[in-house]
Design a protein around this nucleic acid. Sequence first.
DNA 1: CCCGTGATTTAT
DNA 2: TAAATCACGGGG
Length: 202
Amino acid sequence: MARLKRAFYRREADVVARALLGQTLVHVVDGQRVAGKIVETEAYMGVEDKACHAYAGRRTRRSETMYGDGGTSYVFLNYGIHFLFNVVVAKRDDPHAVLIRALEPTEGLDRMRKNRPAAKREQDLCSGPGKLGAALAINLEQDAVDLVESESLFIERAETSLSPSSVVVCPRVGIDYAEEWAVAPLRFYLEDNSHVSRSATQ
DNA sequence: CCCGTGATTTAT
DNA sequence: TAAATCACGGGG
């Protein structure tokens, strides 16, 4: 299957966040494909966005990856426990990113269950950003990987395109501190999909 | 609903 | 060097 190329990623985060829905995120672990369909995303809009790690041009050891070219992975540890997987988008030095929040598992489910013993049902495997990080065995080694060239981490294009009407747009979660940006409509998920995160359905 | 969790960031 | 913060998940 064809993977997404550079030009796909070199656009603003809200555009790419929506376009990523329905595509397949793949991590090859010990030669085995562990993959899922992207069903929920959030856009982080660069230096103007108060919820973005690169807000006001902040450039720290953690956020440095966000300043790379579109199509680079950005992984960080959250709450000391969870590895969250993002895709850096837009152009180099314009630090936009898309957080992948939920997947519908499609390949390597046995591996995912092993990585997530707490998950009781298939819908619990990847229905949140921390959950999918664990299920796909994502950690800091997967930070700053070029998704266009890597043999082990990339995103494949869906064969059929989605109907725009099946996408729900709403505010992002867990960023109450971001003032006016806390209510911006920058979260996208597939309506009626049972693998979206708990906070998406309330 | 509450609370663990610990690296990273930001304030002294 | 110290304190506060935090793009969450699991178990009640």
